[in-house]
C-alpha cells in the first residue's frame, strides 16, 4: 500500500489488501465509523489564520499602491484604492477559508 514497487509480491499484496479491509471493517464495528477529530485548538488557529490572511492582503495591496504612488508621484491615491482592493481580496480569502472549514468538519 505504501510502496507499490516494494518488496511484497503481487499475491502478498492482494492478501494484505484483504487483511486491511477486514481490519478496517472490524475496527468500524468496534469503534463506530471514523470521525474527523477537531480539537478546540484547531479552530482557534483557524481564527488566527483568517486574521492574518485579511491583514496581509490589505498590507500587500497597500504596498503595491505605495509603490505605484512612488512611481507616479500621486501619493494617497493608489495607496487607498489598492488598500481597499486588498481588503476585498482578504474578505474573499477568509470566506474561502471558512468554506474549507465547513467541508472539513463535514455537515456538522
Amino acid at each position: 500500500m505504501a510502496d507499490p514497487d516494494g518488496k511484497a509480491g503481487e499475491t502478498d499484496r492482494k492478501s494484505l489488501d484483504e487483511l486491511g479491509a477486514r481490519i478496517d471493517a472490524a475496527r468500524e464495528k468496534l469503534e463506530g465509523p471514523k470521525r474527523v477529530q477537531t480539537t478546540k485548538y484547531k479552530t482557534l488557529s483557524r481564527a488566527w489564520q483568517m486574521i492574518v490572511e485579511l491583514v496581509v492582503s490589505v498590507v500587500v495591496g497597500g504596498c503595491i499602491g505605495y509603490a505605484l504612488d512612488w512611481a507616479f508621484g500621486t501619493l494617497p491615491l493608489f495607496l487607498l484604492i489598492l488598500g481597499g482592493f486588498g481588503f476585498v481580496a482578504g474578505i474573499k480569502t477568509i470566506l474561502a477559508t471558512a468554506r474549507g472549514f465547513v467541508e472539513d468538519d463535514g455537515t456538522a
Binding site: Q49, V52, E53, V56, S57, V59, V60, G61, I64, L82, F85, G86, V88, A89, G90, K92, T93
Partner: peptide, 12 residues
C-alpha cells in the same frame, strides 16, 4: 483583487 490575494499567499 485576485492578483493581490495571490501575492499575499506566501506572506500569510
Amino acid at each position: 483583487i485576485e492578483v493581490i490575494s495571490y501575492l499575499a499567499r506566501p506572506i500569510s
